[in-house]
Design a binder for these strands. Sequence first.
DNA 1: GCCAACGTTGGC
DNA 2: GCCAACGTTGGC
Length: 134
Amino acid sequence: MHYWLVKTEPETFSWDDLARETCTKWTGVRNYQARNFLREMKKNDLVFVYHSGTEKAIRGIAKVITCACVDETATEGDWSMVELVAVRAFKTPVTLAEIKQDVSLKTMTLVNNPRLSVQPVTKTQWQKCVSLSS
DNA sequence: GCCAACGTTGGC
DNA sequence: GCCAACGTTGGC
C-alpha cells in the first residue's frame, strides 16, 4: 500500500471532473520521473489530487483502480497512464501555504520539487495532510 | 559526454 | 507579469 500525489491544472482537468467520472484515465504525463512513479502505482494505492495555479491545494483523495498501462494519447515515445477513481473530497482543502508552514511536511516533494507531476507521499505525510483536511 | 540555449512549469 | 527551477535539445 503506497501513497501518491498527482498535480493537475483545474482549468484543464479538475478534482470535480474526476469526482464526476467513475473511471479516469490519468493520461498526458510526459516526464520520465513522473512516469516511473506512475508505473510503481498498484491497485488500491491512494492518491492526493492537487490543484496547481491559483488554488494551490490538495482537494481530495483518489484511488488507483488499474495500474500502469500504455498511454494511448501518446503519439510517440514510451508513456504510461493509470486509472483513478475519486474516493472523497476534502472538507477543507489543504493548501500549499499550510503544508509549507508545517515542519513535518517540509520534506514533501510538493515543497521541494513542485514541478514533478506525480510524486510519492510517505505515510506520515499522508496522515498529517488528512488530519489537516477535516 | 558536456554544456549552453531554450522552453515549460508553477509559485509569487 | 516575472523569475527561479528544472528538463530537453542540439552543437561541439
